[in-house]
């Protein structure tokens, strides 16, 4: 009985964990699908009933390790507003080519100790799967990244958060001349994540 109830409800902590995990797999998918790192640096893992490619590069793994941990903490504190993956040219980081924006909406009434909300895990996973599949499908419409690229992760938080020592304030890295495509969204009933990708429109000349 207890098992069934826990499978269909969700707490703030659990929700933060799920969302942070989604970002781990989602960002890995972006890195693989957009060819930011060579495909041989990825390995296939089973997640959400999909085969998702995640990095095997040690330094990238440790990067994700610390970022995802911090993100989960902030998600639990309900202060994350957006998570943005900025893809820019490796030679000139000012030249932003793609911007993957995930708007995070948090139910501010929920606290760590409040009663778990009703929402089944499979429903959440279904939503996550649709977002990740869309990331896979973007290859068909996003322009080719001609130059070697690198990425940067931006997290929009509440204004009054004290910046931790390993983080620094940044500018939004918006793309001036961009085309935007809204992707699907999913919700854990505590966190709602809306995905969007904007990319630089190529000049015709």
């Amino acid at each position: 009985m207890a098992a069934t109830s826990s499978a269909n409800t969700i707490t703030l902590k659990g929700s933060a964990e799920i969302v942070a995990e989604f970002f781990y797999y989602g960002i890995n998918s972006i890195l693989y699908q957009r060819g930011i790192y060579p495909p041989e640096h990825f390995t296939m893992t089973k997640k959400y009933g999909l085969s998702i490619l995640v990095t095997t590069d040690e330094s990238l793994k440790s990067y994700f390790g610390s970022v995802v941990k911090q993100l989960e903490e902030w998600l639990t504190q309900k202060i994350v507003q957006k998570v943005v993956v900025v893809v820019s040219s490796a030679d000139n980081k000012e030249e932003v080519l793609e911007r993957w924006q995930f708007d995070v909406e948090t139910d501010q009434n929920v606290t760590v100790d409040s009663k778990p909300k009703e929402k089944s895990k499979s429903d959440i996973h279904k939503g996550i799967v649709s977002v990740i599949k869309q990331i896979t499908a973007t290859v068909t419409f996003l322009p080719l990244l001609e130059v070697p690229c690198t990425f940067n992760l931006l997290i929009y938080t509440d204004k009054d958060l004290e910046t931790p020592s390993s983080w620094e304030e940044s500018k939004p890295f918006l793309i001036g001349n961009s085309e935007e495509v809204k992707l699907r969204s999913f919700s854990t009933s505590i966190h709602k994540v809306e995905a969007m990708v904007s990319y630089k429109v190529q000049d015709d000349d």
Binding site: I36, Y37, P38, D57, S59, L60, Y63, S66, V67, Q70, Q81, K82, A90, P148, C149, T150, F151, N152, L153, L154, I155, Y156, T157, D158, K159, L161, T163, S166, W167, E168, E169, S170, K171, P172
Partner: peptide, 14 residues
């Protein structure tokens, strides 16, 4: 009304 933070450690280049 928000703060934009980025992780200091640079990502490895391809």
């Amino acid at each position: 009304n928000s703060k934009i933070l980025s992780f200091k450690q640079a990502v490895p280049s391809a």
